[in-house]
Design a protein around this nucleic acid. Structure first.
Lengths: 234, 234
DNA sequence: GCAAAAGTGTTAGAAGTACACCCATGA
DNA sequence: TCATGGGTGTACTTCTAACACTTTTGC
């Protein structure tokens, strides 16, 4: 039997861009035998194991609850209010889910964050795991303090992307058009960059390189594709 | 007896500016009865209580180990490597310090950060508590992974101050000169702002207001004092 | 007067903003 | 040929960087 740490958990906030809006990945709050204990949704997250690094725990939990692997996540904040388990049904659910014998007193959770795009692969994953993408503007009430965690995650993304715009490329397909990139930036920053000047801004980004390919089958002038270049050499 | 959570701790990285350099506040790794168990230094930090918010724990621990109160700290990262207690003497020290009976398995620590100035009050505090300001460039080896935590704290400060330069005013006295502010910015950012252009930059900061006072008793032209203005109205 | 640091002015170039206009494509 | 969105060019403003010079103070 694996040794569970009953005081520390990880939660994963996956923010996915579907081409138009930001979405959050949430799961049903159900027990391990499959029966749904509460009608609530929650973030993918769980208590950690005793001998497990936090980063490893986040990866494991995400895989167990959503099937997703190799998602690059970064830690963004710990949530440790003494009354995080204020809702009794949340505490009871946790104890049952983990088959714990003793009463859970309080849990500090380390929240992780990832930015990614919602592609076809992401859609098919939903069926097996009861994981759902929900637009951030239409988020239902979540268990624990997960609604607060989502809000702080989005705030955190805004700050992070100001310092490091490259993060945003996780939200786009390998090949993307200028307006797709602009749309992502507008969505995340909440601002509205002028479309007419955006090409000049593009030219100043050394990590964005134009390709010779163009869109096909669109009912207007075909847009050029770009790709993200990680290193400095061609 | 107060109930201790044996899995979660807080650590405080206080960065103090003495007018020239950035310093970190460190304490001796000694036991509660006063005998020094190891020769090492560490950050002020401790396990949390079971019914204590993380933010409250950080304030309590800082007061207990350094006597400082009402220091504004912000959480900046959780450190949760499974082998943080790899050094056996650190684990033993912790168990003795907290009078714990069972063996400590692993601890996740939530690191807090503060920027402040080292004034006369800060100096006198040292004698009672064995807390010392040490320049970040001359840091001795610290217990646990505290050296890593300090490094990440400084990195974090750089990022935070880019987004919110107002943070830096905690490092200065109420009245400060332009070159003091410039010196702080240079120290924290690692850059070197041109002194000649700095006044123009000052004029664009709505939250810095010039005073009519000037320096006295300096052997060169007296510099004007400025103050920090928090709100938008005069 | 001299040293030392405060503070101002000028200029050139880079970067951001607004907006007019042309281009390619499907219907 | 029209609607739609892609893309370029020009002019204007604002920000930044480099650097020369003047001012105030104690010795």
């Amino acid at each position: 039997m694996i040794n569970i740490n009953p005081y520390v958990s990880v939660d994963c906030v996956l923010l996915g861009f579907d081409g138009e809006r930001l979405n959050v990945l949430i799961v049903r709050q159900k027990s391990q035998n499959g029966e749904v204990d509460t009608g609530s949704y929650k973030l993918p997250g769980s208590l950690i194991y005793m001998d497990e690094d936090l980063d490893d725990a986040a990866q494991r939990v995400l895989k167990q609850l959503t099937g997703l692997v190799q998602v690059k996540m970064v830690q963004f904040k710990a949530f440790g209010g003494a009354n995080r388990l204020a809702n009794p049904s949340d505490a009871v659910w946790l104890e049952r889910f983990h088959n714990l014998e003793h009463h859970l007193e309080r849990i500090v959770t380390i929240a992780y964050l990832s930015l990614l795009r919602i592609d076809r692969k992401m859609q098919t994953l939903e069926s097996g795991y009861e994981a759902h993408w929900v637009p951030v503007t239409e988020l239902p009430p979540l268990a624990f303090d997960h609604s607060m965690i989502v809000n702080e995650a989005i705030e955190s993304v805004r700050n992070m992307t100001m310092l490091n715009p490259k993060m945003l490329f996780g939200l786009l397909p390998r090949k993307f058009t200028a307006s797709q990139l602009r749309e992502v930036m507008n969505t995340v920053s909440g601002q509205n960059i002028d479309a007419k000047n955006f090409h000049k801004k593009l030219a100043t980004m050394p990590y964005v390189v134009p390709l010779d390919e163009k869109e096909e089958g669109v009912s207007h002038r075909a847009a050029r594709y770009y790709k993200f270049k990680a290193s400095k050499k061609e």
